[in-house]
């Protein structure tokens, strides 16, 4: 491809980096990232990935914008309340960078559609908000061999890691199975400091760019935890579990599973 004059100016701060350069920027423009969720994590991640010139951003989100989202989900504005998140996300991202093709998927991710979506993308950014989706995304990424840049937040704490099939553990190496169907723990709506998913979502965006450019040391086999109250980052080593039911030596899970949400909202 050839850069336009405008693109050379837009991406000049990338192009002058030896680790990126013209070649790297070309690669980013040809790359396709799939964002699971346009919420607290997906918003900052998508915003910076669009700015960085990731050529195609697929965004999966079934929800509409709610007023209570706006404290952290920076892709959406007050006027967007009630609109599908994928629509307000597309508008915001394309206004930021018209080079980026945003593909909205206003659908529930299931075993029936996820592999098709993965086939169209190079990397997954998981910012989802429920366990069935976490397991489905993990399993599909292992089956399809796609890197999964994982982030999660809770109150003042956040975690990031990169699950790269074949090179490090997967989510099931850490949490092999959801709780059995008989056991439904009571659950609560998790509070979260609005700025926190900004930090975690942007670490996910950094890892996504590194994975696409194959530069640096991605967080494979490492869990980065962030404690906003103590303002501390810590790193913990994660290893592959040879007994993992999905990516271990004798896998018992060989096809995708649609779990029911195991949370019941508490009294």
């Amino acid at each position: 491809m050839r850069f336009t004059e405008e693109q050379i100016r837009r991406y000049s701060r990338h192009i002058i980096l030896p680790e990126v350069g013209g070649k790297g920027q070309e690669r980013l423009l040809a790359s396709r990232a799939l964002l699971i969720g346009a919420g607290g994590l997906g918003s900052p991640a998508a915003y910076y990935l669009a700015a960085a010139g990731i050529g195609t951003l697929g965004i999966v989100d079934f929800d509409d914008v709610d007023l209570s989202n706006l404290q952290r989900q920076i892709l959406h504005r007050t006027d967007d309340v009630g609109r599908p998140k994928v629509e307000s996300a597309r508008e915001a991202l394309q206004a930021l960078n018209p080079d980026v093709r945003v593909i909205p998927y206003k659908e529930q991710l299931t075993s029936a559609n996820i592999l098709e979506l993965l086939a169209e993308h190079d990397v997954v950014v998981d910012g989802s908000d429920n366990f069935p989706t976490r397991y489905l995304v993990n399993d599909a990424c292992v089956i399809a061999g796609k890197p999964n840049v994982y982030g999660s937040v809770f109150r003042f704490e956040g975690q990031v890691t990169v699950f790269q099939p074949g090179q490090g553990p997967c989510y099931r190496c850490l949490y092999p199975e959801p709780p059995p169907p008989g056991l439904v723990p009571s659950c609560q709506e998790a509070g979260v400091l609005g700025v926190l998913p900004g930090v975690i979502g942007l670490v996910q965006a950094i890892e996504t760019v590194k994975v696409l450019l194959k530069i640096g040391e991605p967080l494979i086999g490492r869990l980065l935890t962030f404690d906003a109250l103590g303002l501390r980052f810590r790193e913990l080593k994660l290893r592959r579990d040879p007994a993992c039911p999905l990516c271990g030596e004798a896998p018992t899970i060989t096809q995708l599973i649609d779990y029911e949400e195991f949370c019941a909202v508490g009294p």
């Binding site: 979260v192 949400e261 949370c263 909202v265």
Partner: peptide, 12 residues
């Protein structure tokens, strides 16, 4: 020791 986290609802 970490519980699983998915955002949204969390086990109490």
């Amino acid at each position: 020791i970490f519980p699983p986290l998915a955002g949204g609802l969390v086990p109490q």
